[in-house]
Nucleic acid binder design. Structure first.
Length: 829
RNA sequence: GCCCAAGUGGCGGAAUUGGUAGACGCGCCGCACUCAAAAUGCGGUUUCGAAAGAAGUGUGGGUUCGAGUCCCACCUUGGGCACCA
């Protein structure tokens, strides 16, 4: 028994926290047995970035994950709930430049701070599995995986105009460009052509889409939808258009993608993306100057302007013509910015009658509009409104008279037979640009040799360690990766021919590190490979993944992609990493996300000092359903603290000894206990954690009543209630729960106790309140036996004084009886 | 513009999935204990009404004996995508 609790003490969270924190560490409560005697369950919180100490957002997210981990443990599963850090990344580099230090110093100092805070916050983590993506023992295997991707042809380099942030001197992925500005610093983004590493995620587009079927019902609907939109599958045809030769330019064919091959006869011109290489290739000398002027004009536009659909269509004629493969018609080819270089083939056939953008363009440049689908609407050439709906094909040769669907099929059949096109599927998803001209990331394990080209660093020479002699200003980006400055690091012999060669100086996007960490957690100290295959088989997939919705697309998509590639490499069985996903909401203050500029931040440490860990955690969970935002201004950690003290006093008051026979206890209280346990399990299984707390409060209220004005503190049911309360509370308020458990005379830890068995006989009542409605409004209620017959209940209802009064002597038109709960009387009109 | 969620007391939120709307908590009001206060315990608290009663889940319609829950239209808020061929 602990000295923290005795008869006369009052609830003091500081003493309780100080008592139990070291004990749990000692007991290693949350280390999984990993011996196969119990079903394994893997609970994972998205690992944190060590940006400083933990904040309110972490407090919420980890409180949610902990509920699941602790609940599953009570339910008897062998739970693995690991913790680690996503510790590569830009902030560490910026801090190092500012402080003339190495990024590792800042990073690992923050990790230590956060680790201490996590312990204080009583996360049920297995600390023996701790990992950091910036440790060479970790990134060795990130590099090893890169090498496997490279061998499979899934990692490749290409020259590509990339988004370039002039301030950060770095390339940005499309998704890091927010409204034309750099996600980090807000500087307007320009374009620059660079040789970049990519992962071929597009090769997995179909599978990423199809396998979402397995996730339905276990992932939030909106996340699946966002992924689906992001992948952006569209079905159509790729059609080859022959381009006429000119005096000094040969002919060629260019493919275009269309979702509407049925409208081929309506194509009256073609458009290529003005910023695509194709435009420069096609343009005739006569029009070259106009095109390059136009290209300058396009470059000068901000992304926001370019994105505006309100804008007038612009473009220039290239001087070239394509041949419509169906009609043989000669179509002028224009270059414009409304066609995107990186979607489809960067060129389109324009059907102004049935596509609004094409129509706007045609009207601006006075190009012909030909209706080929009669939809019964006004002629688009006159109305200015393109008709894109269903209709009957006209002016379309062999397609005439068909409907849209038939015409699409027929058109594909014709072009396939003629060898001028084929049915195809196009995706919005683009390959994953993974190289970064940054220091603090996983070095790309490639050596460039003049003779041998790209040579992967042999596996036995991994990891390619980051140099540790660069500091401060040396890390600042100067248009190339800072690693280029470390000459002794860069210059190495070629692993193949031993001639002088150079290391690739780019590092990997940190999303690469986080795309496989869940696998490493299964065997974090394994040295023969990225993970122990047996451990992965035992633990994967993650049974519950918890994190913010801000990762709905990128991180989750990349992690799914990695899992599929690693599966295809034959290294794991799983094809999906996370079988269930929970997106917790944000913590707001005053209706807005906490931010420095708004000055509405709430310091987690201060809250913990003031109210205690348990009260803060309880408040986070009780405030709303897990996926909803919590507005800290609307909730009451003081109220939570009050409730915890109230619950804690119940355990203090228990006057029976451990081991008493509960079955002799007060029946009314026992019914509340067993109903609470029963309902709580269902609520926890369906993620309604906030309601579980409400039910626990009701149990505490009922127990208080039993002690003060019922069977009294010595009744066995009171002990049973206190024990169950401690167990339920252990999910949300582990310190208080543990202290109650000890006060009750049980051995630590309540976290390893067994979920209480429900006595089914206590769930059923002898009587129930039946309600009588008249015209759907409740007019009477009375206690009836649960097995009352429909006939009896009907009679009772019709005899009720209030019902008689409302019927006013008339016979009811209809009486619906749902024994034993409800009668609805419909009076005659 | 397109797609998707969600709208319930002064506030955060419940509602067995078509069957007692407002559980639980915050706040507020009152009572007990106290010289007093704090703490604690108990009670009240959707609105109108003295009461009987009536109204009530964003708005308008519909289905049904019965709708917060299902259907249609609209409004508002939040999120995602956006010249995607």
């Amino acid at each position: 028994m602990t000295s923290a609790t005795n008869e006369t003490s009052t609830y003091d969270f500081k003493t309780i926290e100080a008592t139990w924190l070291p004990k749990w560490d000692e007991l290693e409560v949350f280390k999984p047995a990993d011996d196969g005697t119990a079903e394994r369950r893997y609970v994972l919180d998205m690992f944190p970035y060590p940006s400083g100490d933990l904040h309110m957002g972490h407090a919420e997210a980890f409180a949610m994950g902990d509920v699941v981990a602790r609940y599953w443990k009570l339910k008897g599963f062998d739970v693995m709930h690991p913790i680690g850090w996503d510790s590569f990344g830009l902030p560490a580099e910026n801090a190092a430049i500012k402080r003339d230090a190495h990024p590792a110093e800042w990073t690992y100092k923050n990790i230590d701070t956060q680790a201490a805070s996590f312990k204080r916050y009583a996360i049920s983590a297995d600390w023996s599995r701790r990992l950091h993506t910036s440790d060479p023992e970790y990134y060795r295997w990130t590099q090893w995986l890169f090498a496997r991707f490279y061998e499979k042809g899934l990692a490749y380099r290409k020259d590509h105009p990339v988004n370039w942030c002039p301030k950060d001197q770095t390339v940005l992925a499309n998704e890091q460009v927010v409204n034309g500005a750099c996600e980090r610093c807000g500087t307007a983004v320009t374009k620059k052509s660079l040789n970049q590493w990519y992962f071929k995620i597009t090769e997995y587009a179909d599978r990423l889409l199809e396998d979402m079927e397995q996730l339905k019902g276990h992932w939030p609907e909106r996340v699946l939808l966002m992924q689906k939109n992001w992948i952006g599958r569209s079905e159509g045809a790729e059609v080859e258009f022959a381009i006429e030769a000119t005096e000094n330019k040969p002919g060629k064919t260019i493919p275009v993608f269309t979702t509407r091959p049925d409208t081929l006869y309506g194509a009256t011109f073609m458009v290529v993306a003005a910023d695509a290489a194709l435009a420069d290739e096609l343009v005739t000398d006569e029009h070259r100057q106009a095109l390059s002027d136009y290209q300058e004009q396009v470059k000068a536009l901000s992304e926001i302007e370019r994105q505006s659909t309100e804008r007038e269509k612009t473009g220039v004629f290239t001087g070239r013509y394509g041949i419509n493969p169906l009609s043989g018609e000669k179509l002028p080819i224009w270059a414009a910015d409304y066609v995107l270089a990186d979607y489809g083939t960067g060129a389109i056939m324009a059907v102004p009658a049935h596509d609004q953008r094409d129509l706007d363009f045609a009207r601006t440049f006075d190009l012909p509009v030909r209706v080929v689908v009669d939809t019964g609407e006004e002629n688009p050439g006159e109305s200015g409104v393109a008709t894109s709906g269903e209709g009957t094909l006209v002016n379309s040769g062999e397609l005439n008279g068909l409907n849209k669907a038939e015409a699409i099929a027929k058109a594909i059949e014709i072009i396939e037979a003629a060898g001028t096109g084929k049915h195809t599927v196009n995706f919005r998803l683009r390959d994953w640009l993974l190289s970064r001209q940054r220091f603090w990331g996983t070095p790309i394990p490639i050596i460039h040799c003049v003779d041998c080209g790209e040579v992967p660093v042999p596996d036995d020479q991994l990891p390619v360690r980051l140099p540790d002699n660069l500091r401060g200003e040396q890390l600042a980006p100067k248009g190339t990766s800072p690693l280029a400055a470390a000459e002794d690091w860069v210059n190495v012999p070629c692993p193949r021919c031993a001639k002088p060669a150079k290391r690739d100086t780019d590092t990997m996007d940190t999303f690469v590190d986080s795309s496989w960490y869940f696998l490493r957690f299964t065997s974090p100290n394994y040295t023969e490979g990225p993970f122990d295959p047996k451990a992965v088989r035992d633990w994967m997939p993650v049974g519950q993944y918890v994190g913010g919705v801000e990762h709905a697309i990128l991180h989750l998509l990349y992690a799914r992609f990695f899992t599929k590639v690693i599966h295809d490499l034959g290294l794991i069985d799983a094809t999906e990493p996370f079988s269930a996903l929970l997106n917790q909401g944000q913590v707001l203050n005053g209706g807005k996300a906490m931010s420095k500029s708004l000055g509405n931040g709430v310091d987690l440490g201060e809250q913990l000092d003031k109210f205690g860990v348990d009260a803060v955690r309880l408040t986070m969970v009780f405030a709303s359903p897990p996926e909803d935002d919590v507005d800290w201004a609307d909730v009451s950690p003081a109220g939570s603290q009050k409730f915890l003290a109230r619950a804690w006093r119940i355990a203090q008051d228990v006057a029976s000894a451990p081991g008493v026979d509960y079955s002799t206890g007060d029946k009314a209280l026992r019914q509340v206990i067993h109903r609470t346990v029963n309902e709580s399990a269902q609520l926890l299984d369906s993620g309604k954690f906030n309601v579980v707390i409400a039910k626990t409060m009701e149990l505490v209220n009922a127990t208080r009543k039993t002690i003060d004005s019922g069977a009294g503190a010595a009744d066995p049911a009171v002990r049973e209630a206190a024990g169950v309360t401690a167990q339920l509370l252990s999910l949300f308020a582990p310190y208080t729960a543990e202290d109650m458990w000890a006060q009750l005379g049980y051995e630590a830890s309540v976290a390893t106790s067994a979920w209480p068995e429900v006595d089914e006989s206590l769930l059923v009542d002898d009587t129930i309140t039946a309600v009588v409605q008249v015209k759907g409004k409740v007019r009477a209620r009375f206690e009836v036996s649960v097995d009352i017959s429909e006939e009896e209940l009907r009679e009772l209802a019709l005899a009720d004084a209030n019902v008689v009064r409302l019927l006013d002597g008339k016979d009811p038109l209809k009486v619906i009886v749902r024994a034993p709960k409800l009668v609805n009387v419909v009076p005659a009109p």
